[in-house]
Computed example of a mutant assay.
Amino acid sequence: MSLNDSLTNTNKKAKQVSEKFFHTSYEYYKLKIFQQLTTSFGIVFKTIFIGSLLVIGLTFLAIALAFLIGKSLGNYTQGFLIVGGGFVILSIIAFMLRKHMSNFIVSKLSEKFFN
């Protein structure tokens, strides 16, 4: 009888320890996922916010530059064409470097996400 009681008692303790471990692990991973999601959403929100402000600023700078070039050439249309051509050239360069940009973004986000 003593051996049977001892085994039953040991099984109950093992069950309690495993339930506590499962509950603790569950809570830890729940908090970890919450941390990763908030960090990711924070990065996305900041990127969109700063990027939007940057786009607005660059738009006004491009318009001002186009007017400046157009005034110096005596033809505003040529100024806008030159600035537009500059943006097309920058777009082509960005298109050619897209794989490098993707690798850079993945490496930076993986550092944030997996640490």
Rank of each mutant, 00 (worst) to 15 (best):
M1V: 04
M1C: 07
S2M: 06
S2P: 02
N4K: 08
S6E: 12
L7W: 10
T8S: 06
N9I: 05
N9W: 14
T10W: 11
K13Y: 06
A14D: 09
A14M: 14
K15W: 05
V17C: 03
S18Q: 04
E19M: 10
K20R: 09
F22P: 01
F22K: 14
Y28C: 00
L31E: 08
K32W: 10
K32R: 11
F34K: 08
Q35N: 08
Q36A: 14
T38Y: 12
S40Y: 10
S40C: 06
F41M: 12
G42Q: 02
F45C: 06
K46S: 15
K46W: 13
I48N: 03
F49W: 07
I50P: 02
L53I: 07
V55I: 14
V55N: 02
G57A: 14
L61P: 03
L61M: 11
A62R: 02
A62K: 02
I63A: 13
L65S: 09
F67S: 01
L68M: 09
L68K: 06
I69L: 15
G70F: 06
K71I: 07
S72Q: 08
S72A: 13
S72P: 02
S72Y: 07
G74T: 03
G74Y: 01
G74K: 00
G74A: 02
N75E: 13
F80G: 08
L81H: 01
L81F: 11
I82Y: 12
I82W: 12
I82G: 05
V83F: 04
G84V: 03
G84Y: 00
G85H: 13
G86T: 03
V88I: 14
I89N: 03
S91D: 05
S91M: 12
I92Q: 02
A94Q: 08
F95L: 03
M96K: 09
L97T: 07
R98L: 01
K99H: 10
M101W: 06
M101S: 05
N103H: 11
N103K: 11
F104V: 00
V106A: 15
V106T: 15
S107Q: 08
S110I: 00
E111S: 12
